[in-house]
């Protein structure tokens, strides 16, 4: 694991007093959130279900308009920038992207070049190079002519990541990129994401251990607010796990990487109601 620079890192992408909701009338899902995404690092957002982590990511990628506050790219509000300009700086892979029937791998990956192309410039040397590199890096070159819907889940996810990489953006946002994958493919995808030189990555993960292992910068959310942020080794503690997930756990060093490893407390018989009530008011 490469040591992340500590101290005040620069941040191209920031959120200021961000308030988000899907429905005007409803209680906001995210309320007054401030966030700076450190450049060149892997930021991972974790938190229990429905804590607003995916919603935050969608707002960072201008898929969701803020109800209050703003997301800033290089100091400019996203909502004032042309979407094409944003697409040249920020790539985003949604949680469950869908490919058109029968599209081939190379065809799909090449569509990542969309923001760099024009009606009369449909394929350039730069497009060729970016797509070749993206497919090499994600190891899907051999699958280039296969139909995407014939692939396994792990292969398909690599193809989608390749498409996002071909977009050649400095910032890459990934919404639960390991969902639906078995453990080997999860590790494969995370290793891939971890070793993207020069890119700033923001990923939402639901597995705290994976987050602690792969993040330079960890952001823990609960009920639409940030509870803790910082390097995983500094912030992942038994208290944080209890506070954020409501889980009694032991935090020990990961035997392989030394990053914090969360081990849930010994399973008990169906919980005594009194004990549970005492813990979660």
């Amino acid at each position: 694991m490469s040591p992340a620079e500590t101290g005040p890192a620069t941040a191209r992408l920031t959120a200021r007093a961000l308030t988000l909701s899907y429905d005007e009338a409803a209680r906001p899902i995210v309320d007054g959130l401030d966030l700076a995404v450190p450049d060149g690092q892997v930021t991972v957002i974790v938190g229990p279900n429905a804590c607003g982590k995916s919603t935050t990511l969608r707002a960072l990628g201008r898929l969701l308009k803020p109800r209050g506050g703003a997301v800033l790219l290089d100091g400019q509000e996203l909502s004032t920038l042309p979407t094409r300009r944003i697409a040249q700086a920020i790539g985003l892979l949604p949680q469950s992207p869908t490919a058109p029937e029968a599209i081939t791998v190379a065809d799909l990956v090449s569509r990542g070049r969309q923001p760099h192309q024009r009606w009369w410039q449909q394929w350039s040397e730069a497009d060729e190079r970016a797509v070749t590199e993206a497919m090499d890096r994600t190891d899907v070159t051999a699958l280039a002519d296969r139909a995407v819907d014939e692939l396994s889940g792990g292969q398909r996810q690599r193809v989608w990541i390749a498409m996002a990489l071909a977009q050649e953006t400095d910032l890459l946002l990934l919404d639960e990129p390991t969902t639906y994958l078995d453990i080997a493919h999860q590790v494969e995808v995370l290793n891939l994401v971890r070793h993207l030189p020069g890119r700033t990555v923001v990923a939402v993960l639901h597995d705290l251990n994976q987050a602690a292992r792969y993040a330079d910068h960890l952001v823990a959310m609960k009920d639409g607010r940030i509870v803790a942020r910082g390097r995983p080794g500094e912030i992942v503690t038994a208290e944080l796990v209890r506070d954020v997930f409501g889980l009694d756990a032991l935090v020990v060093p990961d035997p392989v990487t030394g990053s914090p490893l969360v081990v849930p407390a010994a399973p008990t018989a169906p919980t005594l109601p009194s004990a549970r009530e005492a813990r979660t008011p």
Binding site: G61, L63, Q88, P94, T98, R111, Q114
Partner: peptide, 23 residues
Amino acid sequence: LWAARAQRAVVLDDDTATALGVR
């Protein structure tokens, strides 16, 4: 002629198309 090109991104899902800078 414009439509023939614009269709390329519309066949993807809404989020992906938006992320690729399509209005």
